[in-house]
Simulated assay, not measured.
Amino acid sequence: MSLFIPPDHVKIRQEPIELKPNEEATLICDSSSSNPPAKLSWWREGIPVQGLVNTSKPGLHGGSVSSIEMKVNVTEQMNGIVYTCQAHNEALQRSVHDAITLQVLCTYLIC
């Protein structure tokens, strides 16, 4: 019998580290190990947005580590926008989340 394990935390990272207007960036969200695998979702300013495929790989204690990505076309207007990643374990009705505030490098200090 397998144990239900809720995700303990999620972590967002961005590539590239420096965001510049008119470039594409990738936001990556990784959850800690959970069983069943956590379902990950993206939110922009509190509104659900579509991410890329939710993937899982073996994790600690017989659980799975889940990841989800999102591609973002960076504009100056996105400076200060908050993206949140939520990991939800349906079997345990437990969720955790992390948020990132985009910091776009502005041209001529105009944003």
Results as ranks from 00 to 15, higher is better:
Ala91Tyr: 04
Gly80Met: 07
Val96Trp: 08
Tyr83Ala: 05
Gln86Ser: 14
Glu90Cys: 02
Leu92Thr: 08
Ile100Glu: 04
Gln77Met: 10
Ala87Thr: 07
Glu90Pro: 10
Gln77Val: 13
Val96Met: 06
Val96Cys: 08
Gln103Pro: 00
Thr84Ile: 08
Lys71His: 02
Gln103Leu: 09
Lys71Asp: 03
Gln103Glu: 13
Ala87His: 04
Val74Tyr: 06
Glu90Asp: 15
Ala99Ser: 15
Asn73Val: 07
Val72His: 02
Val96Glu: 07
Ala99Asp: 14
Thr101Val: 13
Lys71Val: 05
Asn89Glu: 04
Leu102Ala: 03
Leu102Asn: 02
Gly80Pro: 04
Glu90Trp: 09
Thr84Trp: 01
Val74Gly: 03
Asn73Gln: 12
Gly80Thr: 05
Val72Gly: 03
Leu102Glu: 05
Asn79Lys: 00
Thr84Asn: 05
Asp98Trp: 09
Gly80Phe: 08
His88Ser: 09
Ala87Pro: 09
Val74Gln: 02
Gln86Ile: 09
Asn89Thr: 10
Ser95Asp: 13
Ala87Met: 07
Gly80Cys: 08
Gln86Asn: 09
Tyr83Cys: 09
Val74Met: 05
His88Pro: 01
Glu76Ile: 03
His88Glu: 04
Arg94His: 14
Val82Phe: 00
Met78Trp: 06
Tyr83Pro: 12
Asn79His: 13
Ser95Leu: 02
Lys71Ile: 08
Thr75Ser: 15
Val74Trp: 04
